[in-house]
């Protein structure tokens, strides 16, 4: 059982990602609406993958959250996929620099997301 945390300020996107992943593999999906909560969770609970939104109006943004999770997570092998509407090369580079392992640009296809998540988690095994 893999633990996945979805971080996005839009409820529908959170629900969608959870739905896509629920139906696919043996994943346990949790959802939070801001970066701070994600960082807190990663410190307490073993997470395998975080799907992180970049632009969130409340609190820290996705880059800071990614950096913080990578530093403080109890699972140092944890993978982070950035899911964002910011699709510029510059944004992607910034995400990778912050510690993201993969990058998905909104609007994405569920198949693409599942594919990326599967590959990412399989690389951990």
């Amino acid at each position: 059982m893999k633990h996945i945390l979805v971080v996005d300020d839009h409820k529908d996107v959170r629900d969608l990602i959870a739905l896509i992943l629920d139906g696919a593999e043996d994943y346990q999906v949790a959802k939070v609406e801001c970066g701070e909560k994600a960082v807190e969770i990663s410190k307490k609970k073993r997470l395998d993958l975080v799907i992180m939104d970049v632009v969130m109006p409340e609190g820290i943004d996705g880059y800071s959250a990614t950096k913080s999770i990578k530093q403080h997570s109890i699972n140092q092998e944890l993978k982070i996929i950035m899911v964002t509407a910011m699709g510029h090369d510059m944004d992607i580079r910034q995400g990778i620099k912050a510690g993201a392992d993969a990058y998905i640009v909104k609007p994405f296809s569920p198949v693409e997301l599942i594919d990326k998540v599967d590959r990412m988690l399989k690389s951990l095994e």
């Binding site: 996107v13 969608l16 509407a85 910011m86 609007p107 296809s109 569920p110 198949v111």
Partner: peptide, 24 residues
């Protein structure tokens, strides 16, 4: 850039849910 970002969010839901409806 911001506008594109704001459009992408609802589009994500529309695309995602409609694909799920179509594929499942």
């Amino acid at each position: 850039s911001t506008a594109a970002h704001e459009l992408r969010s609802p589009l994500t839901s529309i695309r995602g849910f409609s694909e799920i409806l179509l594929t499942r």
